[in-house]
């Protein structure tokens, strides 16, 4: 079971890396925000999975807090960018 969990953690890390790459190399601001948003959602899943891998389910509390902060941060950034034209 540990092997499967480790595989899952590494795979989620790869997906997070891809999302971060999208956030770094994209045409418009909105593409970058999309990448960051996906990175945040994957981080929640990653924290939860790592908690089970290490046998410390207390990590779930951190995952909940991260989900909350990620959502609020995303909405705040979008409010900021709502009326700015995209970079071509």
């Amino acid at each position: 079971m540990i092997g499967v969990l480790a595989t899952v953690c590494i795979a989620i890390l790869v997906v997070m890396g891809l999302a971060l790459a999208r956030a770094c190399y994209a045409d418009t601001v909105y593409d970058r925000i999309l990448g960051v948003n996906m990175f945040g959602t994957k981080t929640v899943l990653f924290i939860a999975a790592v908690g089970f891998l290490m046998g410390r389910p207390d990590f779930l509390d951190i995952a909940i807090v991260y989900a909350l902060i990620n959502f609020i941060g995303m909405i705040a950034v979008l409010r900021f960018f709502e009326y700015i034209a995209p970079i071509e």
């Binding site: 418009t28 601001v29 909105y30 925000i33 999309l34 948003n37 995303m74 909405i75 979008l78 960018f81 709502e82 009326y83 700015i84 034209a85 995209p86």
Partner: peptide, 11 residues
């Protein structure tokens, strides 16, 4: 919210 702000931004 992302799609809406992209539309308002003119994308």
């Amino acid at each position: 919210a992302l799609a809406k702000s992209a539309r308002h931004g003119g994308l």
